[in-house]
């Protein structure tokens, strides 16, 4: 969203004191984060610091142990029932997930479906859209990610960069309110990274709300409104890119930057 006024904007994603552990391993320690509509937030941090878990919690692919997550006014995963919070039914959870698009490190395209079928599967079978309109929009998205000629190819026939661009198109086909990217370029050969980042930068210019876990600091400089550093399950830095790179406050960020920047 461009032209934000000085009036406080209602966050599109609100994460409040979220705690999550796997067994004894406390992975998220009371994490709080607001993301405004149209904002692009980059999350960096060492492997194992809880970045993927945070993204997965936002989309309810993992359940949280404490705290709450909202998209818009809607509480993720729970509903009020007689003054108490109870876990949602499967169909409601599935409906909420439609609001958020997700892109994975390993692409996770459906190997048995053509590129176009990958993109239209959810619009047709989940949202009940007509095949013709789903395919028309699917082709439009394929053009947007620069692969208009690959509609009938299969994932195995594409390069990693092309697969990831299809995965982005597939997520966009559900017309999500925000996009979550989990290290979208980490599994790619170096020469393919920029073709994916370019698509993401485009998307951010069109006003898409994005949370991007990545170590591509070039992308953070070019597209991020804020950069966050996660360290041992906590957000230890949360600042605009200039400040993040030039005047980091936390020791963990300084260490991170000294490793990642030449």
């Amino acid at each position: 969203m461009t032209g934000q006024s000085s009036a406080p904007v209602r966050p599109l994603i609100r994460i409040q004191r979220v705690r999550k552990s796997f067994g004894d391993n406390l992975v998220l320690r009371d994490v709080s984060l607001n993301v405004a509509p149209g904002e692009v937030v980059v999350i960096a941090g060492r492997s194992g610091s809880g970045k993927s878990t945070l993204l997965r919690c936002i989309n309810n692919l993992e359940t949280i142990d404490a705290g709450s997550i909202y998209t818009g006014d809607e509480l993720i995963g729970y509903r009020q029932l007689g003054g108490k919070l109870v876990p949602m039914r499967e169909a409601e959870v599935a409906r909420q997930r439609q609001e958020l698009g997700m892109v994975f490190q390993q692409f996770n395209l459906f190997p048995h479906l053509s590129v176009l079928d990958n993109i239209t599967a959810a619009p047709i079978h989940v949202r009940g859209e007509a095949r013709s309109s789903a395919e028309a929009y699917g082709r439009e998205l394929l053009s947007r990610v620069g692969l208009p000629e690959k509609a009938h190819a299969y994932p195995k026939q594409l390069s990693g960069g092309q697969q990831q661009r299809v995965a982005i198109a597939r997520a966009l086909a559900m017309r999500p309110r925000a996009m979550l990217f989990d290290e979208p370029t980490s599994a790619l050969d170096p020469e393919m990274i920029s073709e994916v980042l370019d698509v993401m930068i485009d998307l951010s210019r069109q006003g898409m709300t994005m949370i991007v876990v990545t170590h591509e600091m070039g992308f953070a400089r070019a597209a991020a409104d804020r950069v966050i550093l996660m360290h041992q399950g906590e957000i230890v830095e949360n600042a605009p890119p200039e400040e993040f790179f030039t005047a980091p406050k936390s020791e963990a960020t300084k260490q991170f930057l000294s490793k990642i920047l030449p």
Partner: peptide, 13 residues
């Protein structure tokens, strides 16, 4: 990852 992708697209089990 196929489960994750399907779930993230809003598919029920």
């Amino acid at each position: 990852g196929q489960h994750d992708a399907a779930r993230a697209l809003g598919m029920t089990y």
